[in-house]
Design a binder for these strands. Structure first.
Lengths: 243, 243
DNA sequence: CGAAACGTTGACTTGTTTCAATAACTGTGG
DNA sequence: CCACAGTTATTGAAACAAGTCAACGTTTCG
């Protein structure tokens, strides 16, 4: 694998072009590579001294549990994303991190990050950009839950994942492979699993998207964008590259 | 006013005790103090090269607008909070910032922050903590919209604002002054203004909280905490002080 | 091959929205 | 200081989106 082919390198490359030396420093973060099985949480709500990770392969869900047992998935992570970065600084982690599939991830200590930044200062700006982008995605998700209908939410979500996956080369405009069950979608979108099923059926019957057997397939991309009111500028990934 | 009395100093002081020199550096951020009238937005969605601010007095709402004109308030800011910090780094601001009351705020440039961090490195950690805390609040808000009922949402919101205001000395366990209209509450909680009114009435009739004439008054604090399932650990402000 | 997880559908219930009308504030100019 | 306009609060009735319960089909995997 060439250096630039790591998902994180691809993603950061959309923000700023990275030199060979900078890619090298980035690669240094991928020592301590680990594998985790689906369903075994990496990070637990309330626990302290947790590590952060860079996800290399597979899908992950970050979620919170409520006293009554309900759960809300805050975001999914895909290759190239950070996991639990906030819990490095915080007194205790305020959320859980669960692999949706079998995953591969590199453990990252605060000191690793600082070392990399010293080697390649441009990297610090790029990572800060990635973190701000994560926050912007959480904000957009909040807007979905507060002000979009179930159908708009689903459409918006499927489109956001497409844009994010495209950035790391795992999707194109026709669709992508998606390992999420309808239960996971329900917990992310603030719906019941039954309603998720109905919404997906309706979107399919309207000829907009088909999500079946682990594959999301856009039948009418522009129609879906219109329905969702999807505007990808919050992902900040359409800019002309800085060089 | 003694140095430690600025709201930001009070807030950061809950994370780490600050020396006189550090308070001095923090104070340096309060040059360029400005006043803004209620309703005249400071930062606009889609605009670039925006400033960040530290809020010194008054309340502010950060929100996003949807194509159909609906709006979702992401968070309110109170004295001691940063405004639009994310839009310093980002290509264009992805949200609007509107003063709810007449406010006073100090404009902060990226270079000001870096200067202050150089003068007082402990400040960098404290600011990073504040930013992470902001993100944790957005996440908890998202959980509210996704998985809590209207009544739980309202209760949770009123309790969160109490905890935050206490940290800067603007509230106690009995209540606080709150300039938010029911329309603003509705746009924050993902409800209609009519339903906000009904929810407030019901909470009042249950003897839990009274929110009338600009004042939130807790009639049964513990009962409200129980109803909301409120657990303030995500605010990370209960820790024993680091010295 | 069987069990468990996941997906699908229908009938019914509920929380929240919408529409509509009226009352109570708030601030401003005469 | 009062009258008026605009905003904010309050309440009822009807409509609707999404949830719940329940049953059954389908896939996956050990």
């Amino acid at each position: 694998m060439r250096l630039a082919d790591s998902p994180l390198a691809r993603k950061l490359g959309a923000y700023v072009a990275l030199s060979e030396a900078e890619l090298e420093a980035l690669n240094g973060l991928h020592r301590r590579r680990r594998r985790f099985e689906a369903g075994r949480d990496l990070v637990l709500q309330g626990q302290s001294h947790q590590s952060a990770y860079i996800l290399a392969e597979g899908w992950v869900a970050s979620y919170k549990l409520l006293p009554d047992g309900a759960r809300q998935i805050v975001d999914f992570q895909i290759p190239g994303d950070f996991l639990g970065l906030r819990s490095i600084l915080f007194h205790a982690s305020d959320h859980n991190v669960e692999p949706v599939t079998r995953i591969e991830a590199s453990e990252v200590l605060a000191s690793d990050l600082l070392d990399a930044f010293q080697l390649a200062p441009k990297l610090a700006a790029a990572v800060l950009w990635a973190v701000s982008r994560d926050e912007a995605m959480v904000v957009e998700h909040l807007v979905s839950l507060g002000r979009r209908s179930a159908e708009e939410r689903m459409a918006h979500f499927l489109l956001e994942m497409d844009a994010r996956l495209q950035l790391v080369g795992l999707a194109d405009r026709t669709g992508y492979d998606c390992p999420l069950s309808q239960y996971l979608l329900a917990d992310a979108l603030g719906l019941s699993a039954v309603h998720v099923n109905r919404v997906l059926r309706h979107l399919r019957e309207q000829g907009l998207v088909t999500f079946q057997k682990g594959r999301v397939c856009f039948d009418d991309f522009d129609g879906l964008v219109a329905l969702a009111g999807f505007d990808a500028t919050y992902l900040d990934q359409e800019r002309p590259l800085l060089r």
